[in-house]
Design a protein around this nucleic acid. Structure first.
Ligand SMILES: [Mn+2]
Ligand SMILES: [Mn+2]
Ligand SMILES: [Mn+2]
Ligand SMILES: [Mn+2]
Lengths: 219, 219
DNA sequence: AAATTAATTTAGATTTAACTAAAAATATTT
DNA sequence: AAATATTTTTAGTTAAATCTAAATTAATTT
């Protein structure tokens, strides 16, 4: 049984490892968790003894199959709670992440089973991220950043790659939501910003950073 | 802001103090929390510096108005979550207490406001305990133990004084639920057990301990 | 291949929340 | 009023999770 702190480290490792496909360095973790490298070294040693990651001094860590399973279950809980907050409690999509950070650590398998049922087995969270199933399986849809699209392409927003309230509120202001239809008009060489048309309304410019965090699929 | 541990101590103090009306000793707390007296002494010193209790060496503690307000807010959260679990997620009344012990520490005022709304402003939890309102006001109904009733009295079950799963499952087996009509037939001098009739079915005996934990009102 | 820089680990310290054992204060019994 | 028992506190330890500063290892530049 992992502590809340250990769960947060493991989840961070999972995310940074790109679904367990890449190694994760001490500094990457320190950065992600706003913690000092020395603290991270201590914790990864502990997690390695629990066999949820493998660790070689100075070589970084890799998540193990057991660790990945636990990480995906935490992510499942996080995303189910986000759906609950938005669908049932009428929260906005920019308000739910921090609360879900707390709720994801509640321990009760039955609770999550019942919550899933109550929410009618959702497959994605309010930001378009897929919800792992009970067996830890993740449906991966291929997503493109708006920043990568070519002028003329007509796309549909299927997810966002960032759950910061500031970013999501910005999307609200410019009229982006999951399901919105976006036509890419032009990419500005100078600063990487992109001119887009959302749901056939007058076009707007979005910054490179914004365009990299909006994920779309061909429509 | 109190830590999870401090919140649990404060809640225990509130409960043991009978709504803040009585002092609470070190040993009472150690007992309630399954902790050593020395640990309790440390923690009550800390809580006293935070002005949620007053403490005099060797004299035990008293909860302050500020402490009572915080305790009632934790209890409010606990009971609202229990209603959620039973009403929305179809849990049994004996399954919810331990999960609510975790959920009560989630920090978000908005979450509790929205949950209350979602549950349509319930006034009691699944065990008949009143839910403090947003201002920390508690509606106190006067409740009688079955053990205190006189033979011949017709009563209605309005609450239970114990949320242990074993006790609640026992009530399920003998047919006691909130709202059940109970006729007290006889009190056995020898062991304090009580013969009762539930919803006009054939009479049963319940132990003194059981009779002390079922709360009723005249019907 | 040195020298320098960057990343990582080690050593030692701190805080929180627990513990045991011993001391001190209070309460009860004789 | 002593003696005894009980309760509570103090003193010193431990484990978890952090930190800073110093040492070590690895990577990069000259
Ligand atoms: Mn989130
Ligand atoms: Mn978390
Ligand atoms: Mn409860
Ligand atoms: Mn609790």
């Amino acid at each position: 049984m992992l502590s809340l702190t250990e769960e947060n480290y493991l989840k961070a490792i999972y995310h940074l490892s790109n679904d367990g496909t890449k190694g994760v360095t001490t500094n990457m973790l320190a950065d992600q968790l706003s913690m000092r490298a020395a603290s991270v070294t201590d914790m990864i040693k502990k997690l390695a003894t629990k066999d949820v990651i493998s660790y070689e001094k100075y070589k970084g860590v890799n998540i193990t199959p057991a660790g990945k399973k636990i990480a995906l279950y935490i992510i499942r809980k996080h995303r189910l709670w986000e759906v609950f907050l938005v669908d049932k409690l009428k929260f906005q999509w920019d308000e739910v992440h921090d609360i879900a950070e707390q709720l994801e650590h509640i321990k009760s398998e039955l609770l999550i089973k019942r919550l899933d049922e109550f929410l009618d087995y959702p497959s994605v969270d309010p930001h378009g991220d897929p919800i792992p199933d009970e067996h830890g399986e993740l449906a991966v849809a291929k997503k493109l950043q708006i920043a990568e699209c070519l002028p003329g392409q007509l796309m549909q927003v299927i997810a966002v790659d960032n759950s910061d309230a500031q970013f999501l509120k910005h999307l609200d202001r410019i009229g982006i939501y999951l399901g919105a239809k976006v036509k890419v008009l032009e990419t500005v060489e100078f600063d990487g910003s992109v001119e887009i048309e959302i749901d056939r309304r007058p076009s707007v410019y979005i910054s490179k950073q914004t365009a990299e965090n909006i994920l779309v699929t061909e429509k």
